[in-house]
Design a protein around this nucleic acid. Sequence first.
DNA 1: AATCAGAAAAAAATCCATCATTTCCATAAT
DNA 2: ATTATGGAAATGATGGATTTTTTTCTGATT
Lengths: 297, 297
Amino acid sequence: MKNKGLRKREGFEGQRLIVLPKKVIADFLTRDLVTKQIYITDIGYYPKAEFHYAERPAGISQHIIIYCVEGSGWLEINKKRVDVNPSEFIIIPANIPHRYGAGSSKPWTIYWVHFKGELSAYITELILNNSENYKPNLSYNDQRIKLFEDIYNNLEKGYSSDALRYVNMIFSHFLSSLIYEEKFNDTDKKKGKNIISLSIAMMQKKIHSVIKLHEFASFSNLSVSHFSAIFKTETGYSPIEYFNHLKIQKACQYLSFTDMSVKELAISLGIEDQYYFSRMFTKLMGSSPTEYRKKNK
Amino acid sequence: MKNKGLRKREGFEGQRLIVLPKKVIADFLTRDLVTKQIYITDIGYYPKAEFHYAERPAGISQHIIIYCVEGSGWLEINKKRVDVNPSEFIIIPANIPHRYGAGSSKPWTIYWVHFKGELSAYITELILNNSENYKPNLSYNDQRIKLFEDIYNNLEKGYSSDALRYVNMIFSHFLSSLIYEEKFNDTDKKKGKNIISLSIAMMQKKIHSVIKLHEFASFSNLSVSHFSAIFKTETGYSPIEYFNHLKIQKACQYLSFTDMSVKELAISLGIEDQYYFSRMFTKLMGSSPTEYRKKNK
DNA sequence: AATCAGAAAAAAATCCATCATTTCCATAAT
DNA sequence: ATTATGGAAATGATGGATTTTTTTCTGATT
């Protein structure tokens, strides 16, 4: 790593890389029903890839995905120059001229993979749909990296048809995570975290009672004014307004599925004054409670 | 569940099931390049499925996979009777006459899925290769169940083309785990071999504490200098640098998915000085912690 | 070849200070 | 009940100076 001033293509301390043999590609990957859809041809990891540089005036026949862990780099494609920073991906479609390289001050650390197959162009396109400037819109997720490492580790063990099929099926999963960010992240993580969603959960639980604004506020350990303010910016509604919406929603359910009178209904939702309830309902739903019941029963 | 003596096909307390609408199958799943390879038509979960019973004298056009979590059941296919016990899978190829049902004393709890697609017959065959009596040779692995639940949860949210592609690409991963048991289980097990991956595992476990270099070294029974040296050649990073990277990655997750303050975060990662943490983060990720949070939330 | 000890050089951690930004409350107006 | 506003307090970002730890290097030992 001491050849300052030179651009190099391979050889970094700690690097790992696997290039699938031509024979394996020809004999198995392009023939097997599973792998011929999508298969990896090369995969690797370059830590602190000083002077890393690649120039391909005619592109290559594989699609390329690069994931930058650290440091920075750049990509030049279609006369566009794209900076690449930590926790960003880039995708380079097959047969498109391009150049890329590590940044000079802080060279990037990257995972990369080349792939082909009958479905590859289509998938690449889907990823590009979720991208800006060849960078998919994604946030950090270590599950994605685990998939990558799983792939790498299995390939390292050899090229049995088993391993190859297995690896490329996981690769599908990996690719899907680039196409559909939100789904990939959604699983269970972002529930019950912040003050606002906690408050909303509380509203849902206490839908049958009267709760004053200051109770919500003190539940959240915030002053009334401040609580109000952030609630509004987060949800677009002020707290009580939101709470009332929930109540009206509940009312709709009761109207459709029970025979409760409007008065009973109002009381069960903690709204003492049935007339007030009726007016509120009408204002929100466009029709009065009984009208609504007629229409929806 | 009180209809003793009767065999029933649907309806168990706590059951979950999704049947993809015919229209979705016809309009999207069989047409999209990705999904037409493999797509799910039905998926579900039946807890304690008392009197569960299905008889299909001509089979059905989808392949079926059933995973038994608890209790027991049986399958009759090709004149063979197969007992099904906890943590076992069974696979039933399309168009083969069969019957199956829950055991009478301890009825099974099952996950199940029906699938079709151009590749489905081939995949089914591969799974059968790894099976005895229609039972894939597998040991318990909860990652597999997680994949299943991920699939279920995403389907539950709707049938957008995004969700459908995503789900069926994970399904690929799931299926591959049935074909290649050893590989699927291998991921973390084989890590325990060399000193470096042991150290990294330790880092991951102790991500919340301060650990000095000499502790890592003595943990590995190596001198500080030697440990440092081999760590660097293997990973491309020096030990503490690597450890810090892990911490920053963790920080990214917390920033995206929680409302923890930067100070709390720093402390939770064993970095007493929040200012130092902030600087380190910025240096590595290119943006300060709160900037990062804004961008990725 | 693998390992260690020791020392110099490099980098990381700590501490302190400063400035910018955000959060928060009290008050008043709507 | 909600929104607007000003000022106080807390939090966060950044820089420099200093101390501590880590990294790297060399040569010696097993």
